[in-house]
């Protein structure tokens, strides 16, 4: 799951630094991800994991790090964190 999340962030996060330079707890907004990019990340995650984010999870903190995204996905799609 982590690698898929990183791949989606690399493709849609429009970060000015490679994802390889960011650890799982790095703040993606501080790293340069904009609100508009986070929308694309959200939609790409929905495509990649075949689900839809409920409105209750559409908060900035849901997408602020790889770890936060992984925790959100785990709670939604039930895939255990490796």
């Amino acid at each position: 799951m982590e690698e898929e999340i990183r791949q989606i962030l690399e493709e849609h996060g429009r970060l000015p630094v490679p994802m390889a330079d960011l650890d799982n707890n790095a703040d993606l907004y501080e790293a340069g991800m904009t609100s508009h990019a986070s929308v694309n990340v959200m939609l790409a995650l929905e495509d990649g994991f075949d689900f839809e984010f409920p409105e209750s999870m559409l908060r900035k903190s849901t997408f602020e790090s790889v770890s936060a995204i992984e925790a959100a996905l785990t709670s939604l799609v039930g895939t255990p964190v490796e």
């Binding site: 429009r14 609100s35 508009h36 990019a37 929308v39 694309n40 939609l43 929905e46």
Partner: peptide
Amino acid sequence: TDLVPVEHVAASVARFGHRYVGRI
């Protein structure tokens, strides 16, 4: 205030289509 590159929106429309437009 906010600043948005038009190309980023164009890419989102092209990639996600109605799902992007309808959510925003």
